[in-house]
Amino acid sequence: MTIKVLVVDDSSFFRRRLTEILAADPELEVIDTANNGQQAVEKAIALKPDVITMDIEMPVMDGITAVREIMRQQRTPILMFSSLTHEGAKATLDALDAGAVDFLPKKFEDIARDKDDAVALLRQRVKAVARRRPIARSGAVTRPALTRSAFERPKLSERLQESSAPVRSGAAGSFKASGKKYKLLMIGTSTGGPIALQRIITALPANFPLPIVLIQHMPAAFTGAFATRLNGLSKITVKEAQDNDLLKAGVAYLAPGGKQMLIEGSDNQAKLRIKEDDSPRITFKPSVDITFGSAARVFKDQVLAVVLTGMGADGREGARLLKQYGSRIWAQDEASCVVYGMPQAIAAAGLMDVEVSLADTASKLIAEVTHG
């Protein structure tokens, strides 16, 4: 069966261009278009598409209001298109908060350097978000149909085969802290990550005993606005990481978009290094693998790393290195992920110590690091 797409944008040129790109994929079918948010709401209810692509600035009803109304009346996965500006970032974060699943830059050259790569990524992203029902913002999680990400299950090393089975999410109160001592909490995520991170970070207490490093796949124009938003909602301090920042307990450092964030120094006086990365071999900037790997060399077995919702497998190799040093790896469960790619890569590689649902991740983190 094809994935039914509703394209919403007030630009006839963009609607036509996007329709042509999506319709050229045999797995996708553009069933209709809309030129404002009010039409989008009406057609979402009438046509029940599998996914909606949505502009933000439109006449009659803007995209954020339309997202909120669609989530109220006809819950549908929505992919936002945004300008890479500070105002565009704020509006996109508002749209995600309203219920949109993910976003992409509206200019295709901002999606990828090569046009063919941009087109392929766009189609891939539409397919990925279409397979997931949006996560309820009230706290209850809508359980989606099970899906598989397109990557091969790697062979497990003898060491991992002999390791104990991971702790799976269970009923409230079933979690038991490991008793392990940590000096750093790291969280890596991609598609669906902004809302997942917001839910976790805002639930942490002001006296949280560890520094926190956050790696979210996000454009450079967005990370500053996202850090500011998290800081305003949280009891802990959240900031966009800067070069030479010293890691301090109770502070969360968000990796800047378009760059790589590494950890250097010693486990008692670690600092962040923010570096430009023009390498065409590195897909993600920031990359979870790169930051996780650098932390393994500094903190060895004293890291608690969490991999949340996201496409692909970024974080798997960094987690493998952390695991080799004796650190612990948690992964989000499939039911609460927007896209079960990155956590599935962790689970399939045999690297997962604990599987957690988004709803109880914060409480379990607090229990784990405080041995409560």
Rank of each mutant, 00 (worst) to 15 (best):
residue 1 M to T: 13
residue 4 K to A: 08
residue 6 L to K: 08
residue 11 S to N: 12
residue 12 S to R: 11
residue 15 R to H: 04
residue 20 E to R: 15
residue 22 L to N: 07
residue 26 P to T: 09
residue 29 E to N: 13
residue 43 K to A: 00
residue 51 V to M: 01
residue 53 T to V: 05
residue 54 M to Y: 06
residue 57 E to R: 14
residue 60 V to E: 02
residue 60 V to G: 08
residue 63 G to C: 04
residue 66 A to D: 06
residue 76 T to V: 01
residue 94 D to K: 01
residue 101 V to S: 15
residue 102 D to M: 03
residue 118 A to Y: 10
residue 118 A to D: 03
residue 127 K to A: 04
residue 127 K to P: 09
residue 129 V to H: 10
residue 130 A to M: 07
residue 132 R to S: 14
residue 137 R to N: 05
residue 145 A to E: 14
residue 145 A to L: 13
residue 151 F to W: 08
residue 152 E to F: 01
residue 155 K to G: 03
residue 156 L to P: 05
residue 156 L to M: 15
residue 157 S to F: 06
residue 161 Q to M: 14
residue 163 S to E: 14
residue 165 A to Y: 05
residue 170 G to H: 11
residue 173 G to H: 03
residue 178 S to H: 09
residue 182 Y to D: 11
residue 184 L to K: 09
residue 185 L to W: 06
residue 187 I to A: 05
residue 190 S to V: 04
residue 195 I to Y: 03
residue 195 I to H: 07
residue 197 L to S: 02
residue 197 L to G: 12
residue 199 R to S: 11
residue 201 I to S: 00
residue 204 L to H: 11
residue 212 I to F: 11
residue 215 I to S: 03
residue 217 H to P: 08
residue 219 P to I: 11
residue 229 R to G: 11
residue 230 L to M: 15
residue 232 G to Q: 06
residue 234 S to N: 10
residue 240 E to I: 08
residue 240 E to V: 04
residue 241 A to R: 07
residue 243 D to Q: 01
residue 248 K to H: 11
residue 250 G to S: 09
residue 250 G to T: 00
residue 252 A to S: 02
residue 256 P to K: 01
residue 261 M to C: 09
residue 268 N to W: 06
residue 279 S to K: 06
residue 279 S to W: 07
residue 281 R to M: 12
residue 281 R to V: 10
residue 286 P to H: 03
residue 288 V to Y: 10
residue 289 D to H: 12
residue 293 G to W: 03
residue 299 F to I: 09
residue 304 L to N: 12
residue 310 G to L: 01
residue 311 M to F: 00
residue 315 G to Q: 11
residue 325 Y to L: 01
residue 336 S to G: 05
residue 340 Y to A: 08
residue 341 G to P: 01
residue 341 G to K: 13
residue 351 L to P: 10
residue 356 V to R: 02
residue 357 S to Q: 12
residue 358 L to T: 01
residue 363 S to V: 09
residue 367 A to P: 04
residue 368 E to I: 09
residue 368 E to M: 07
residue 371 H to E: 13
